[in-house]
Design a binder for these strands. Sequence first.
DNA 1: TTGAAAGCGTTACCAC
DNA 2: GTGGTAACGCTTTCAA
Lengths: 341, 341
Amino acid sequence: MADVARQAEVSIKTVSRVVNDEEGVRPQTAAKVRAIIETLGFHRHEGASMLRKGRSTSIGLIVEDLGNPWYSQLAASMEREARSRQHFLLSVSAEGLPEREAELVDALVARRVEGLVVVPASSIPSEAIRRAALQLPVVCVDRPLPGLHADTVLSDNDGGTRSAVEHLAAHRHQHLGFLGDDAAIWTAQRRHTAFVQSYDSLGLPGRPRTALGPYAAGEVSDILQEWCSGTAPVTAVLTSNNRVTLAVIVAVRTLGLDLVVVGYDDFELAEFLDPPITVVHQDPAALGERAVQQIFARLDGDDAEPRTLVLPTRLIVRGSARRAARIGEGRSGDRARHTAS
Amino acid sequence: MADVARQAEVSIKTVSRVVNDEEGVRPQTAAKVRAIIETLGFHRHEGASMLRKGRSTSIGLIVEDLGNPWYSQLAASMEREARSRQHFLLSVSAEGLPEREAELVDALVARRVEGLVVVPASSIPSEAIRRAALQLPVVCVDRPLPGLHADTVLSDNDGGTRSAVEHLAAHRHQHLGFLGDDAAIWTAQRRHTAFVQSYDSLGLPGRPRTALGPYAAGEVSDILQEWCSGTAPVTAVLTSNNRVTLAVIVAVRTLGLDLVVVGYDDFELAEFLDPPITVVHQDPAALGERAVQQIFARLDGDDAEPRTLVLPTRLIVRGSARRAARIGEGRSGDRARHTAS
DNA sequence: TTGAAAGCGTTACCAC
DNA sequence: GTGGTAACGCTTTCAA
């Protein structure tokens, strides 16, 4: 910037004004400065700016894995929303490890993000995030962090789960199974609980078959096979997220089971599988959008008590669960066919 | 840091040494400093550090859309690779707009990323990226930027396309179609050319039917319907990427066409569609990994001429294309069935 | 093993 | 409209 000032024969301050599109610079002066900036290939040093201003016009996001479509949609929508306010999104993956998450919190705070959005890896707030929450707005997405003074944006796990169970029950499925992801994941637990409650409150017979991960290789297959055999075989299963849905689809197809699958989280092409997969849809993009809006609200001075926002889910019914259970029919190996009811 | 120094009754420099795990601090001094850091909730200011050091231990990535699984896998693998060298990944979406890409290049350079990886939005290097390439290592991924002094990591578009066409021809498909993505995308063009060349060199009859986007709503359906009617109907189509594959699958299923689809880019569940989809698999994670390695090689002092790396593709054969063309058979509306040949 | 002081590039404040 | 100067928080250099 000093170089530019020298060449343009103006002061550093004037260059700074031009770079920041500030008022009070004669157009011709500005033009000259801009020309020099161009020829010199000058780039403002954000670090220096951050240092002086004490702010960074960026917000941070910590998820489990950016490679997972659910999280990458979250990140993409947050990026859009942040950009609408001239902010940068720094998004990183903690790989489900609380200690890595803590490191990343510190790294983002060190980069002076103005707000931090986290999909927590565990249900216990780390020291790092407690400290962070004292200095800047923190928003938990998808899973809460009890005891942390932070806003929270969740989707309606209870309602979503209930809608799936009710739908299956309405189609004469009586013996349902639930396959959750890793028990350490809050949503898996939550949906598990909601599943059992819905099962009971609907007065479905017997006890619900449920399992929680993490699953060893082939374990999902084993579980399904067991559930599908015996005197009261399961005719439909609900999963707790896209990862498990995938494993279940693979198992069902590999084993040739006649099993209705309802997934948590929508995914591309779900409609075109055979049978099509009904899903509980929660919109990660909407979650991300609200989270960023929450951050900005706080930055704009909103200092009310922490809020929890619960976004609705939507049951997307596809062939898989419209197909009613065929009570008393022979359950041989004949392949599931899309049969609208 | 000054606060910490005061409280710990040491100099700022000593605190700095502790924070950076430098040698030459008595363990007890270090312990005391660390304790104060903890109680004060001190966080090193990366901006100030960057300013003084002139480096940022971060690298930048510009893609089209982080929400697209292909790009998010690229980003995830780059993040892993960067972390293995203690670097941060700043990943942003340009939404396919060259002017936004230019802005983002400047924004990342302003943040003093040490290297920049770009999936270029157009084939013409912007001024911004030209300037950037003079100051730091730039790597183009997936698409080249002719005339830019930068390393490039591509996947083998010609080979991948040829493998798909040869595979189809070997299964007696004679009338093939190619549906490319937006003509502005280099890979779409490239695969289009390779498709036509393969078609000719294999001596397939007639002229290859091809189309390039962008497609209006419903246009893909119209094109396919036209190709599938007439005297020499197309029996198989190749797409140029996952976006088009999706549109084609939707159209094929909606129209009930009896058409073999080979996709470019693998995707989850491709195996379980009916019919299963054969794909040309290119590993975005591998591309990302190599790109980051290239950046680090340059940072480590490698100053050879720019290199272009071409990674191989792999044809993943699934039922869709194993199914041979049924020459002379009636082509009524009967639904495609998985028929191994 | 520890410390003092200079300086990185920018912006805020005030003066002209 | 424009310019000088201090200060942001850190690391480098050099000295103790």
